[in-house]
Structures are given as C-alpha cells and as structure tokens.
C-alpha cells in the first residue's frame, strides 16, 4: 500500500500536503481501495469553513456514501473540479490528480496531531 513519506495522515484515512500557506487534502490509497469504484465526489464549496475532524466532503462508490473529514480547520480556497467529470481519479491517483480540496489552515498546530507516514502505515497494517 502506497503511503508517501512527504504527507501527514488522519486516522480517518485522509492525507494533507503542506506547501507554504496552502494545504491540499485527499484520501489515501488504502481508503480508495476500501471504498472501491468511486462514482461521485462532492467537495466542499470554495470559501467554506471546515473544522478538523468534521465532515468536509462526500465520496460515493456504487455501494455506499462515505464522509471525508477535514484533517485541519480553516477555509477552503480551491476544489478539484476534475472530480465531477472523473471521480475515478480518486481511485487511480489518490495522492495526485485525485486531490479533493485546498485550504488555508487557521490552526497550523493541528498538523502535529496528525499521523506520520510511519504511524499511518502501522495503523493500516
């Protein structure tokens, strides 16, 4: 299972990539494997306030709808518009083209509460 070393992880199987003031959020390879064929994604709206641990997006497989929890609190600055036409990107490239939204974090210290790649790998093993 792919767990990139440059990301931090939530127990609920989301990842974040921090680049300057921008945080990109997606779901992990493990999550997409568990969810299987993803057929629909509902990202948050740009400008929405999201809270760490609260539902920020929904992805749906043929069988079930799953909440995606924001790993950090802050404001959504951009959403991946490709996902509406091609939700399968969440399956094929979860750490790349399958990103869900970008945000500006209001409490950057929350990052420290997230899992390291090693800790997340241990969780899913």
């Amino acid at each position: 299972m792919n767990v990139p070393a440059d990301l931090r992880y939530a127990k609920t199987h989301e990842w974040i990539r921090v680049e300057g003031d921008t945080v990109t959020v997606g779901i992990t390879d493990h999550a997409q494997t568990e969810l299987t064929d993803i057929v629909y994604a509902e990202p948050p709206k740009v400008g929405a306030e999201v809270k760490a641990g609260a539902t920020a997006a929904v992805v749906e497989s043929v069988k079930a709808a799953s909440d995606i929890y924001s790993p950090l609190s802050g404001t959504v600055t951009e959403v991946n518009s490709e996902l509406s036409a091609n939700p399968a990107l969440l399956n094929t490239d979860p750490f790349g083209q399958g990103w869900i939204y970008r945000m500006e974090a209001s409490s950057p210290a929350e990052v420290e509460a997230l899992l390291t790649p090693e800790a997340y790998t241990a969780q899913i093993s």
Binding site: V39, Y40, S84
Partner: peptide, 13 residues
C-alpha cells in the same frame, strides 16, 4: 415507481 435522475448528481440510494 421507477425514477431516474435527469441531472448529474450523486447515486441514488
């Protein structure tokens, strides 16, 4: 009664 979405949207359940 059978229904189908006429707009793009989430899967119905």
């Amino acid at each position: 009664t059978p229904l189908k979405l006429t707009v793009s949207g989430p899967p119905m359940r």
